[in-house]
C-alpha cells in the first residue's frame, strides 16, 4: 500500500489520458477532463505525461501516505494541505510517510489533478488506467474512490525534484467571460435561422447536472425546429434522429431546450440531434466550469478551430520546455 483514502471527496477518480479505440463498443474516451492539467502535474513530479493521477471534483479527498512521495496538484484551485499546513499548487511537493494530504474549499475552477511520482498503479484495462464508472471499468475497481481504499504507486523514476514549480505566466487563468467555441455540424439545419442566431446570442448557465458524462446548460431561449415528417425510426420529437454516434464535444439539445456538451465519459450514441460541436481546444476549459457559471457559445469555422488547437498545443509545448 502506498496511500490510503480516509475521506473520498465528492467524486475522486483515477484518470490518465484516456482509452481511445473502443468507442464502437460503447466504451468512451474517459481520461482527465482537463488534459493539460494532468499532463502538467505529471511533468512536475517527473512522470510520463500520461501516468495515472487523481481527478478531484469540487471537494478534495483526504489521503494518508504510507511511503515518501513527490506530488503535485494542478488544475482548478482546491488548495492542498499537508498535515494541515497550506501548500502551493502547480509545484512539486515532497510528502513523508505518515503525512496526511487534505484540501481546503474550492477557490476557482472545478477540477484539480493530483500526480504522484511513479503514477497510480491500477491495472491497465484496454490500454488505460482511467475510470469509466458507468461501465465499472478501469481505475480503482471501476469506481470513484471510497474511504478505506488503499492504492499502490508505480516505481518512481528519477526525474522528480521537490520545489519544481510552473512559472505563473504559464498557469492557465480562467477567463472572466467564458466563451465556448463551436462548429455547426450535421444537424444544424434542423433548427430555424432564428434559433441558430439565438443559440449563439443567448447566455447559458452551467446546470447542476455537470459531470464527466456531459455538461448541461440552462437559461437560453428554447430553440424552434424546422417542421418535418419524422423519419422512420427517429422518434416523434422534433429533436430526435435515428440513433447515431455522438462526438466528443458534441452539443445535443433534447427538445430544443437545454444544450448538453458531451465530455469524456459521454454516452457514445443516441437519438438526439447534435446541431454543433465544441472545438477540441476548448474541452479542457469545460472541465473547470462550476454550476451557475454563465457561458456563451461562439460560432467559429474549421480554420479558427484548427488555429485554436495549434495555440492550445503551443501552450503545452511551453509548459514542457519550462519543466524539461
Amino acid at each position: 500500500m502506498s496511500f490510503k483514502v480516509t475521506k473520498p471527496g465528492l467524486a475522486t477518480t483515477v484518470q490518465d489520458l484516456g482509452r481511445p479505440g473502443y468507442f464502437h463498443l460503447g466504451i468512451p474516451l474517459s481520461g482527465a477532463m482537463d488534459q493539460i492539467a494532468l499532463r502538467t502535474a505529471n511533468l512536475l513530479v517527473g512522470n510520463d505525461e500520461g501516468a495515472a493521477g487523481l481527478e478531484i471534483v469540487f471537494m478534495g479527498p483526504e489521503l494518508i501516505f504510507a511511503r515518501d512521495a513527490l506530488i503535485a496538484i494542478t488544475g482548478g484551485e482546491i488548495p492542498p494541505k499537508l498535515d494541515g499546513q497550506p501548500q502551493p499548487t502547480w509545484t512539486a511537493l515532497p510528502v513523508k510517510a505518515g503525512q496526511t494530504l487534505s484540501f481546503d474549499f474550492l477557490k476557482a475552477g472545478a477540477r484539480a489533478y493530483l500526480a504522484i511520482e511513479g503514477g497510480i498503479d491500477v491495472p491497465l484495462v484496454l490500454g488505460s488506467r482511467s475510470t469509466y464508472a458507468l461501465g465499472t471499468l478501469g481505475g480503482f475497481q471501476g469506481r470513484k474512490l471510497q474511504a478505506g481504499d488503499e492504492l499502490q504507486l508505480g516505481p518512481a523514476g528519477n526525474g522528480g525534484r521537490a520545489g519544481r514549480s510552473l512559472p505563473d505566466s504559464l498557469r492557465p487563468v480562467l477567463p472572466k467571460e467564458i466563451r465556448l467555441r463551436a462548429l455547426p455540424g450535421q444537424f444544424w439545419e434542423r433548427i430555424t435561422e432564428q434559433a441558430q442566431a439565438q443559440f449563439f446570442e443567448d447566455t447559458w448557465k452551467v446546470a447542476p447536472e455537470a459531470d464527466r458524462i456531459g455538461y448541461r446548460f440552462r437559461g437560453g431561449r428554447p430553440l424552434d425546429f424546422v417542421p418535418r415528417e419524422p423519419p422512420f425510426g427517429a422518434g416523434s420529437d422534433p429533436s430526435n434522429i435515428v440513433d447515431g454516434c455522438y462526438s466528443y464535444g458534441s452539443i445535443q439539445i433534447p427538445g430544443g431546450t437545454e444544450p448538453i456538451v458531451l465530455h469524456r465519459d459521454a454516452v457514445s450514441g443516441g437519438g438526439y440531434f447534435m446541431p454543433a460541436t465544441v472545438i477540441s481546444a476548448d474541452m479542457d476549459l469545460i472541465a473547470q466550469l462550476q454550476p451557475h457559471v454563465p457561458v456563451r457559445f461562439e460560432r467559429v469555422d474549421m480554420e479558427t478551430a484548427l488555429a485554436a488547437r495549434a495555440t492550445h498545443r503551443a501552450d503545452l509545448e511551453r509548459i514542457r520546455s519550462a519543466l524539461a
Partner: peptide
Amino acid sequence: AFGGDEHVYGE
C-alpha cells in the same frame, strides 16, 4: 459534416 475539428460524421 464535421463534428468539431476531430470527427467526420456521415449520415
